[in-house]
Structures are given as structure tokens and as C-alpha cells.
């Protein structure tokens, strides 16, 4: 419902910056987790973020507000695209720009109390990448994002060591491909 959407946007837009460690697991229905990855993320609203996966393989997804870079060190490849095209509404985009990413493309349901609140998002257009997304807040802090896709796979991102309103040097959102990296536009 509309009020729930507003409350979710207010929660996400409450502070200018957010940093946290995260773990991410994707698993099919009933299967054990296929691959668990860990990393650190920084968000500076609007639209600046660094989503840095460290384990088991490095990947950097960095937006300076205009250009989004995806850098895979073991592939020695970096791709770039305008941030606005980032239509898949990745979790980083939702955290960085809730106002535009959580517009009417989603119906929002809220459940829980002040200690633990869950927001469940259902995309209104059926070829959305995720057919369900749940954001969990504990004591007002983002704790988890759970994404279900239409192949029955669930991706669970758990946040820890969450800090809000911290000073972040803008240079952290500037990415320059290291020498020897093949650079392409994102297909």
C-alpha cells in the first residue's frame, strides 16, 4: 500500500550515507547454497555507491552518480553504463536511490513492529528480474534483502556492521580501470 512505500522510502532515505559488510548467498529451491560471497558496501545518496565483493572472487560495482562500473579482476574486464540505465533495481540502487527505484513499479507491503519490520515488494510489470523482494529492518537498520527470481532461486543478502551518516571520501566512488584491463560498454 502507498503508506508502506512512503515509510520504506523514508527509512532508506533517512541518512545521506550508509556503509556495511554483507554476505550474499544464492540457492535454488531446497538446494544448499550454491555460492556464498562476502564484501563491503558504501552508499552516498543519491546514486553513489561502491559494492565490493571480496570473497570468494573479487568484483567491484561502483557508481559515481553518473556512470556505473562493473570490474571483474580475474576476467581483467571492466564494463561501464549510465547509472540511469541500471533498471534491474539492484539492491545497491535501491539503497542509493529509493525514491526513483521504488516508484509505482512495485506494490509494497509492510509487516512487523518497531524492533523488526519487513517490507515485501512485488513488481507490477511481469518481466521484472525479481518476482519478489523483501527488505528487513532491525531497530531501524537495514538487516537483510531477499530476492526471489522466476527460476525459483533465492538470493539472500545479509548486512552487518551497519553505519549511517559516516563521512565518505567521494574519491571512493571514482573508478579507473587498472592498466591491462579490457574496457567495454555494458551490453
Amino acid at each position: 500500500d502507498e503508506a508502506a512505500r512512503e515509510r520504506l522510502i523514508d527509512r532508506l532515505a533517512a541518512t545521506a550515507t550508509l556503509t556495511a559488510d554483507f554476505t550474499q548467498e544464492t540457492y535454488g529451491d531446497g538446494e544448499l547454497s550454491q555460492e556464498k560471497s562476502e564484501g563491503h558496501m558504501k552508499v552516498a545518496r543519491p546514486l553513489k555507491f561502491a559494492w565490493l565483493v571480496n570473497q570468494p572472487y573479487e568484483q567491484q560495482v561502483i557508481s559515481d552518480g553518473e556512470t556505473l562500473w562493473v570490474y571483474d579482476p580475474d576476467l581483467e574486464q571492466a564494463t561501464y553504463q549510465p547509472v540511469g540505465d541500471q533498471i534491474q533495481r539492484s539492491p545497491a540502487m535501491i539503497l542509493a536511490q529509493p525514491e526513483s527505484t521504488l516508484n509505482n513499479d512495485y506494490d509494497v507491503m509492510e509487516a512487523g513492529d518497531d524492533a523488526l519490520t519487513a517490507y515485501r515488494l512485488f513488481p507490477t510489470d511481469e518481466d521484472a528480474v525479481f518476482n519478489q523482494m523483501t527488505l528487513m529492518f532491525e531497530q531501524g537498520e537495514i538487516r537483510e534483502i531477499r530476492l526471489k527470481d522466476n527460476l525459483g532461486q533465492t538470493t539472500l543478502i545479509t548486512f552487518s556492521n551497519v553505519k549511517t551518516g559516516v563521512e565518505i571520501d567521494p574519491a571512493e566512488f571514482d573508478f579507473t580501470p587498472p592498466p591491462g584491463t579490457d574496457v567495454f560498454e555494458q551490453m
Binding site: 568484483q59 564494463t79 528480474v129 555494458q186
Partner: peptide, 30 residues
């Protein structure tokens, strides 16, 4: 890749004699 565009995805390939299962997925499984 083609001349100026690229995309990357995860690959899981299982081969059982002549039968195979290949899964291609984006960073968030999408």
C-alpha cells in the same frame, strides 16, 4: 563481447557423459 560492448555472467557447467547442465546467471542470480 563484440567490438565495443560486453557483458559477464557466472557459469556452472555439469557434464555427465553426454548429458550436460549449464547455468548462466548474473551477479545477483538474475
Amino acid at each position: 563481447r563484440n567490438t565495443n560492448e560486453a557483458s559477464s555472467f557466472n557459469v556452472e557447467w555439469q557434464q555427465m557423459a553426454q548429458a550436460f547442465e549449464i547455468e548462466l546467471s548474473g551477479p545477483l542470480g538474475q
